[in-house]
Simulated assay, not measured.
Amino acid sequence: MLLLNVAIVVLAILNISALRESAQLPPEYRTPYMLMQYQSETVAEARMLTSFDGQDIHSPMHLDYLLTMYRHGSSIPVTDVYQGEVTERRITLVPATTSFSIGSSLSVGTIFLLFALYVLFRHRDRSYAPVLHLLAACTAIMILFDWGALAPLPLVANFLLRLLFDLSIWILPTLFFHFSFIYPTDRPRLRRRWLVPWYAVSLIGMGLSIYYTVTLYVGGTPILDTDYLPVHGIINDVFLIAGLLCTVAHFEYAALKITDAVLRKNVYWVLLGIMFGPLVYVFMILAPRILQGSEFVSDALMQYTLILAPLMFWKVLRRERQPE
Rank of each mutant, 00 (worst) to 15 (best):
E21Q: 02
E324S: 14
E45A: 03
A200P: 00
L317M: 15
L311R: 12
R193N: 06
L164H: 02
L3I: 14
I307T: 10
A7C: 11
L4P: 04
A261H: 15
V9T: 04
Q55T: 15
L63D: 01
R90Q: 15
F179S: 07
L229I: 14
E85S: 09
L93S: 01
G84W: 03
V196H: 09
T98F: 09
F177E: 04
P173G: 13
F176K: 05
A149D: 00
L164S: 00
D56K: 14
V81S: 08
L2A: 10
T221Q: 02
E28S: 03
W198I: 00
R321E: 12
K265Q: 07
A309G: 09
P27L: 00
L203K: 14
P188A: 11
L134P: 06
L291F: 15
H123C: 10
C246N: 07
A46H: 02
A116R: 01
M61V: 09
L311N: 12
P188L: 07
P95N: 07
V262M: 02
S298F: 05
S51L: 11
T31A: 02
I8T: 07
Y128A: 08
T42C: 07
A116F: 06
A254I: 12
I241M: 14
R122V: 12
F112L: 08
V78E: 05
L317N: 09
L163D: 07
V280M: 09
L190R: 15
T87Q: 06
Y304E: 05
F165E: 09
V248Q: 10
T305A: 14
L117D: 08
